[in-house]
Design a protein around this nucleic acid. Sequence first.
DNA 1: CGAGCAATTGAACGCTGTCAACCCGAGTGG
DNA 2: CCACTCGGGTTGACAGCGTTCAATTGCTCG
Lengths: 269, 269
Amino acid sequence: MDTTHETRPKGVVIMKNGNTALPLPACFSLKSTLCFNLSPSASEELAQIARIRNFRAGETVHAEAEEVGFIGNVLSGVLRMQKTLHDGRQQIVGLLMPGFSFGRVFSHTSHLDIESATDVALCCYRRQSFEALFTRFPEIEHRMLESMTQEIDAAHDWMLMLATHTVTERMANFFLDLRRKGVGADSAQSERSLIDVPICRKDFAAYLGTTVESISRSIQHMSRRRLILILDSRHFELIDIDGLEHLSNGGDNYLEGRSGTGISRHARS
Amino acid sequence: MDTTHETRPKGVVIMKNGNTALPLPACFSLKSTLCFNLSPSASEELAQIARIRNFRAGETVHAEAEEVGFIGNVLSGVLRMQKTLHDGRQQIVGLLMPGFSFGRVFSHTSHLDIESATDVALCCYRRQSFEALFTRFPEIEHRMLESMTQEIDAAHDWMLMLATHTVTERMANFFLDLRRKGVGADSAQSERSLIDVPICRKDFAAYLGTTVESISRSIQHMSRRRLILILDSRHFELIDIDGLEHLSNGGDNYLEGRSGTGISRHARS
DNA sequence: CGAGCAATTGAACGCTGTCAACCCGAGTGG
DNA sequence: CCACTCGGGTTGACAGCGTTCAATTGCTCG
């Protein structure tokens, strides 16, 4: 595990605990599931063991089958969780946006790679130190449970997309996801529905479970249908949110109305 | 929530706690992640709040978007976790075999249906009672974390299969899974690799993310290739485990050796 | 015996994976 | 400044897996 720039977090948020002010790392102000809005005492203890770690794009944050050494929160940038097949193919099983956390507790070796898709800043806790807080601060363990619950739900949702939707439909869903929780979603971008795909075409394809060629074609298709506007290869404007929503939900065939000619995969009355 | 046959569990396993013998429900003897091999005191408390519930095939154990009321362990039979689309299509995101548990803690409403695929016996704990034990018995909450970790890993694994493998490959993987942890896997069946698909073709298709027609064709295909023997529509004998293993791992094209002509989806050197 | 459901089989079409060529910008070096 | 290379991305042609539609079989049940 490479230690690229491990630093004590500089206090960003000042929180009143009785009459003492204690500095908290920036992740405590994100609506992260792990450390947002914990009790003052728990926040303080967590801040004690927090370390900021920076990675450049393309680095390995955690290798497959390696013992998980720490819990991490994404402060900025995007991580990709991926699995690699014997023949070298890679599948991305999840993207970690700012505010999301990763890592396993109780010495479980995870079977997935975590790599930085962009330059990334993380707020990390060593696993043992983190677990040690569970007994005194059950709320932290509860947060962990909630975080994992979210991860399970997200996995199930994406599983559904992979199994029942076409590439274009999955892409529509992904774009809408990016609009909601993507990098810079809380900036002025979201007003005009400008999205910034934080990954290259290869990763894009690995996430959607398809190929770069199909990605290209789907983008062109959505552009021709006036659903999106192509700014450049990584930036788009969503100009028909309803249409995209509709597309991501079930394709072209509604339950009632708008007799589309498109087909959705293995529909059966 | 229908209360079909809720009973106090009859003691099956007798455990020595000091000099008192306490009866535990049967699930405590399964290698379940939740209640197997807990400390005697924790086991005793858990047994206090355990209730056995029985469902017939096809009943709804937990409806989508409904507040989760209890934690459950599968004692016998099979549950299917499924999600339903607007147009009525269903996707099975997981099968719960004996020894596996389900349910959410901390008042999280799960977005999936849980229905019994066969007649089922469950060992259930009311959510509030279960959570109340966390403070006094952290080991129970830890088990919960481990169980959820397993669920996440399983979801990621299946996601990988859906995204990168053909229907036949997914089926090979599913058959091997059934051999390992399927119903009756610890009986004499496993010696001869007889497997018992506990779900109908429709569910089979919904699990593999395909159609009943493709299921049929894939089964016939595997039979012609001498990988399996068709006993009847739900019972098969795996006669070439290595071949199935190979098929489920990456399809017909190895990295080296055995120059197969088959193609696997979006392989790229 | 007919209705109804589960499952299989056949045929045709289409989404998409594969292969190949091309475009383009960045970096490099003469 | 230009030629070259290289990687990322796009476009086109083609084939194949798998969905869809349709027909058939076998079985259960009333």
